[in-house]
Amino acid sequence: EYSEEELKTHISKGTLGKFTVPMLKEACRAYGLKSGLKKQELLEALTKHFQD
């Protein structure tokens, strides 16, 4: 599980793409985000969540 700060850091540095799909799905579930099946959809959901 990833902390909010850790995820925000990866988003701001542009390194969230280094996460694997299972890692991204886990992060989306942890924050109650609707997650797609594609890596890009997962990245967009997390990025949008933490930028709002």
Rank of each mutant, 00 (worst) to 15 (best):
E44W: 08
T9Y: 14
E26P: 00
T9A: 12
T15S: 06
H10W: 05
E1G: 12
S12C: 11
K13P: 04
E5K: 10
Y2H: 06
G32I: 01
C28S: 04
T20H: 01
E1N: 01
T9C: 11
T47E: 05
E1W: 07
I11P: 00
Y31K: 04
T9F: 14
D52E: 15
I11C: 08
E44H: 09
E26M: 07
L46V: 07
L24A: 01
K8C: 12
G32Q: 04
L46M: 01
D52K: 15
H49C: 05
Q51C: 02
E1C: 03
K18Y: 05
F50N: 00
P22E: 15
Q40L: 06
G14W: 02
L43F: 03
I11V: 10
G14P: 03
K39W: 01
L33Q: 02
T47L: 11
F50P: 02
D52M: 07
K8A: 10
K34W: 03
T9K: 13
Y31H: 15
K38H: 10
E41W: 01
V21T: 14
A30M: 13
E41M: 07
M23V: 10
A30L: 14
R29S: 11
G17P: 06
F19L: 14
M23I: 04
L33A: 01
L33T: 00
E26H: 13
L16F: 02
K18G: 13
H49G: 02
A30S: 11
E4Y: 09
L43R: 05
R29E: 13
K13F: 07
L43C: 07
K13T: 08
A27S: 03
E41V: 04
A27L: 14
A30C: 15
A45T: 14
R29K: 14
T20I: 00
L37A: 14
F19D: 03
Q51A: 10
F50H: 01
K8M: 12
Y2P: 06
K34L: 06
F19T: 10
F19C: 14
E1Y: 14
K48P: 01
Y2S: 05
K38R: 11
T15Y: 03
D52S: 04
I11Y: 14
V21D: 01
S35D: 11
L33M: 02
K39H: 12
E26Y: 05
P22Q: 15
E44Q: 12
S12L: 12
E26K: 08
L7I: 01
L16K: 03
L16M: 07
M23P: 02
Q51H: 10
K8W: 11
T15M: 04
K48T: 11
P22C: 03
L37G: 15
D52L: 04
H10E: 05
L37M: 13
M23F: 06
T9I: 13
L7D: 01
E26D: 06
L16S: 02
E4P: 09
K38I: 07
E41R: 03
L7S: 02
E44T: 10
K25S: 10
L46K: 01
D52Y: 15
H10K: 02
T20M: 00
K25N: 15
M23L: 06
L16W: 01
K8R: 13
T47V: 07
K39C: 03
S12R: 13
L46Y: 02
L33K: 00
T15G: 04
T9P: 01
K39M: 00
K18H: 11
C28D: 01
K13S: 08
K48Q: 15
T9N: 14
V21N: 03
T47K: 06
A45E: 11
